[in-house]
């Protein structure tokens, strides 16, 4: 009985908590005027009228497909590039001997505490100098190498049994061979954690695209919805439809790979 009551109260709390999400999904199906007028009543969370009109409007008003492609392309490129580059570095630091290794690794650890915000201003002028403004490159390349990802890979590789490589070495396999065929397949949880953490940070990137992009061509979704919101006429139904289209694919991915999302998030907490 107590458990049932606890469950019901938890359900109520989660309903209130998710009201903004419901508001967005349901509002996206309503006429613009209704969204605003009904916001103060229960009807805001009740789909009494449902049409895809707002979705059609968004597609007609802005190049939504372009934004979606930009966001996907940029995020996938950062995640893929980051997995490769940072896992190799993490492997080198955890399993290979080379001169200067400890010093270099200490530098990597120190760089971990520098947030993008602290270097954004000079980085902006630096990429301007490179002629990278308003490109995909400027939104991808600076974010591939990541000190925290290296650290996560490093700690995971340290925990793998040494016998893995030793058997490979007896077979005469090279370092790259060993890494890709023996180490990486045994470290899938580390790859998944890093992929998901990178995805979560990069998918929502706003400050940097705001600084370096100026047109629709390479603008990602989080910035695009902010400009869409300030684009007259202010139509909340359309804005919510934009929001749903932008977040629905991520919600689906999240629900399918939930276990990995949770692991990825928990991995951040292992630090320290």
């Amino acid at each position: 009985m107590k458990r049932v009551l606890g469950g019901i109260s938890l359900l109520l709390v989660s309903l209130i908590y998710l009201a903004p999400v419901l508001f967005m999904f349901i509002g996206s199906l309503k006429p613009d005027a209704d969204v605003l007028v009904q916001a103060g009543s229960w009807r805001a969370l009740w789909p009494d009228t449902a049409s895809l009109e707002n979705y059609r409007n968004v597609i007609a008003r802005v190049p939504f497909g372009r934004y979606l492609f930009n966001s996907l392309f940029i995020t996938v490129a950062i995640v893929a590039g980051g997995l490769l580059v940072n896992s190799l570095a993490g492997y080198a630091f955890s399993r290979l001997q080379f001169r200067g290794r400890n010093l270099l690794f200490a530098v990597v650890l120190a760089l971990m505490i520098i947030p993008l915000e602290a270097i954004a201003v000079p980085l902006f002028y630096q990429v301007t100098l490179f002629g990278w403004r308003d490109t995909y490159i400027v939104q991808i390349i600076p974010f591939i190498a990541n000190a925290f990802s290296i650290y996560l890979f490093y700690t995971y590789f340290l925990g793998l049994p040494k016998e893995l490589e030793e058997s490979a070495r007896i077979d005469g396999a090279g370092v790259l061979h060993t890494f890709f065929l023996i180490i990486a397949p045994n470290a899938l949880p580390a790859f998944a954690s890093v992929a998901i953490l990178t995805f979560l940070t990069q998918w929502g990137a706003f400050l940097w695209p705001l600084m370096v992009t100026s047109g629709d061509a390479v603008r990602p979704l989080p910035l695009a919805i902010a400009t869409f919101h300030s684009l007259p006429p202010l139509q909340w139904g359309d804005i919510f439809a934009f929001g749903v289209m932008m977040v629905a694919p991520v919600i689906l991915v999240f629900i399918v790979f939930q276990r990995w999302f949770v692991r990825g998030v928990v991995a951040t907490g292992i630090k320290g």
């Binding site: 580059v85 570095a89 000079p122 190498a145 000190a147």
Partner: peptide
């Protein structure tokens, strides 16, 4: 050389896009 080689892309990225702008700041 292998260890350095494997970590070189990441180190280069961190140097160019974290350490340099940090010093510049």
């Amino acid at each position: 050389p292998t260890g350095l080689l494997l970590s070189a892309p990441a180190l280069l990225g961190l140097l160019l896009f974290v350490a340099v702008p940090f010093t510049l700041a």
